[in-house]
Simulated scan of single mutants.
Amino acid sequence: MEFAGYIFDLDGTLADTMPAHFLAWRQTAEKHKLELSEDRFYSLGGVPSERIFAMLAEEQGVVIDPLACAHEKEDAFIELLSEVEPIEPVIEVLRANHGKVPMAVATGAMKWVMDRIIDQLELRHYFQAFVSSEDTTRHKPFPDVFLEAARRLNVAPEKCCVYEDAQLGIEAGQAAGMHVVDVRNLHTPRRITAGA
């Protein structure tokens, strides 16, 4: 099938960041007396950190500043960034389509974190557009991030192919009317918790 544009999620799709993200989450959550299992962490893929902290605090009856905690978690993640590697089967798709069709990153990550990961892995030259959590009001599973990426690429949504690793992101891509490739069929992230 020929596509006029490709859109890629970042964490767990282009970059094998999920183990490092979970370690940063666990460290920050424990500090603030919050619990977050690895299974729950993966189920919330694509949801901005601030929203997750607010959700956990409400569920667990803990008073925190969700935005401050989100920044703290991202700082902890950046400390682990040197361990992050690209996900080769997805990078091969980038290489195969580079210079042929426009491509974008569409992520629930904050822009500064997205920029650090993209630059660490030297991927910036592949893309014509970048959409981060600050660029839309609604986040995955809403289709907004992917629709904004398609708009910036000047490609009709139905002519776009999305690469995504999280269920909420897959639902967002489908809601946008795009063809979706589930990266979990190409790559299995390393789990931190034994037996998880």
Rank of each mutant, 00 (worst) to 15 (best):
M1R: 10
M1K: 12
M1E: 12
A4F: 06
G5P: 08
D9M: 08
D11H: 06
D11L: 06
L14S: 06
D16N: 13
D16M: 03
D16Q: 01
T17A: 15
P19Y: 06
F22E: 02
L23H: 08
L23V: 11
A24R: 04
A24C: 10
W25H: 09
W25N: 03
R26Q: 15
R26K: 15
T28V: 09
T28E: 05
A29R: 05
A29I: 08
E30Y: 09
E30T: 14
K31L: 14
H32C: 00
H32N: 11
E35T: 14
E35L: 12
L36K: 08
S37H: 12
S37Q: 10
E38L: 11
D39A: 15
R40T: 12
R40L: 14
S43T: 10
S43I: 04
L44C: 07
L44W: 10
G45Q: 07
V47H: 03
P48S: 03
E50Q: 12
R51T: 02
R51V: 02
A54H: 07
A54D: 11
E58Q: 13
E59N: 01
V62S: 00
V63L: 09
I64K: 00
D65M: 03
D65I: 04
P66V: 01
P66S: 02
L67H: 11
A70K: 03
H71C: 02
H71E: 12
E72N: 07
E72S: 14
K73A: 08
E74F: 03
D75T: 13
L81E: 09
V84P: 05
V84A: 07
E85H: 11
P86A: 13
I87N: 01
I87F: 07
E88K: 12
E88Y: 01
V90C: 09
I91M: 10
E92A: 15
E92W: 03
E92T: 12
V93R: 14
L94D: 08
L94G: 10
L94I: 11
L94H: 10
A96H: 12
K100L: 14
K100N: 13
M103T: 09
A104P: 02
A104F: 05
A104Q: 02
V105K: 01
G108H: 02
A109P: 01
M110W: 05
D115K: 08
D119E: 15
D119P: 00
D119Q: 11
L121T: 08
L123M: 15
L123K: 10
A129L: 05
F130R: 00
S132T: 10
D135K: 03
T137F: 05
H139P: 01
H139L: 00
K140Y: 06
P141A: 04
P143N: 10
F146E: 04
E148Q: 11
A149M: 06
A150S: 15
R151V: 04
R152N: 08
L153A: 08
L153W: 05
L153I: 09
N154K: 14
V155P: 00
E158M: 11
C161Q: 15
C161D: 00
C161Y: 05
C161S: 02
Y163E: 03
E164L: 07
D165N: 14
Q167W: 09
Q167L: 13
G169Q: 05
I170L: 09
I170A: 02
I170H: 01
E171F: 08
A172H: 04
Q174V: 11
M178E: 06
H179D: 08
H179Q: 13
V181R: 06
R184M: 13
L186F: 13
L186A: 06
P189L: 07
R190G: 00
I192L: 15
T193Y: 11
A196N: 15
